[in-house]
Design a protein around this nucleic acid. Structure first.
Ligand code: ZN
Ligand code: ZN
Ligand code: ZN
Ligand code: ZN
Lengths: 139, 139
DNA sequence: GTGAAATTGACAATCGTTCTCAACAGCACC
DNA sequence: GGTGCTGTTGAGAACGATTGTCAATTTCAC
């Protein structure tokens, strides 16, 4: 049906994969490109975009949209969701079987097929909250 | 704390509100602007963007990101989520107290405060699925 | 009505992302 | 170790969605 998507292994793709794995937060293509440049890599921006899209397609990275831009993160392979700090990007992976079940049931109940879902929680992590409160009371 | 956000009532904003309410699917600013133009309205595109952002901020519209663009829809005022057809945009509003509770608990358990969440289900509605299957078997 | 301040519309500018295309590199086969 | 086919790369242009700019206009409290 769908072409098996041939994929050649290259230095650049590997470099992007490593850079992504080195960060444990969600990062944008632009940010990743910059940090790679800072480490001496000469990989082009377009290649970073392409590599990240490929990783996401192959299930080696999770992607989510926040504030209008696409963010990527190297993640465990099993389906899961995220709890993300708005301020520092710190991420916790979440498993939520109950939510999966709910999503499937709700879709079926309304006659929808091939359901997919977006479930993400954003907040301020303890550290960032403490930091902000300190700044607040200081004025 | 936060400025009370003065807001003057104008023909244009009202026109955008009405156009949005006339559509029961999620629409982009561009699409709404075009359909308003088609009805003879002369409201500018930038104004449509500004009006939609204001409506969302005031809780009179829900916003979500899909395929890189912001979509808006006039919604009930109480907090809820959506089940959306990927093909025709048909939308069902969902209430899910259990999901709200889960999101709050998970955030608290990890020390996150001021939790916010994105929960949307995408799928193919019965009609669109039937249509696609018909086309498929026809070949 | 008057005037301060918000709003508008046309347009330019910006932002993230994708496209284009010639040069290059992985890989299967000899 | 070549050779050739084809996927990949990098630089820059192109793109589409959104936001900024600014003079002209409109709202609204007085
Ligand atoms: Zn993940
Ligand atoms: Zn899930
Ligand atoms: Zn549909
Ligand atoms: Zn909710």
């Amino acid at each position: 049906m769908t072409a098996p998507a041939p994929r050649r292994s290259t230095k650049q793709r590997e470099a992007v994969r490593e850079a992504l794995e080195a960060s444990d937060e969600f990062v944008s293509a632009q940010a990743l490109h910059q940090s790679m440049r800072a480490e001496g890599s000469t990989v082009g921006l377009a290649t970073v975009y392409r590599a990240l899209a490929a990783l996401a397609e192959d299930g080696e990275a999770d992607a989510l949209q926040s504030a209008g831009e696409l963010l990527y993160r190297a993640c465990t392979k099993t389906h899961h969701h995220h709890l993300i700090c708005r301020s520092c990007g710190r991420t916790v992976e979440l498993e939520a079987a109950a939510v999966e079940r709910w999503a499937g049931q709700v879709a079926a109940a309304h006659g929808f097929v091939e359901p997919d879902h977006v479930v993400d929680i954003f907040g301020l992590c303890a550290e960032c909250a403490a930091e902000r409160d300190a700044r607040r009371s200081a004025g």
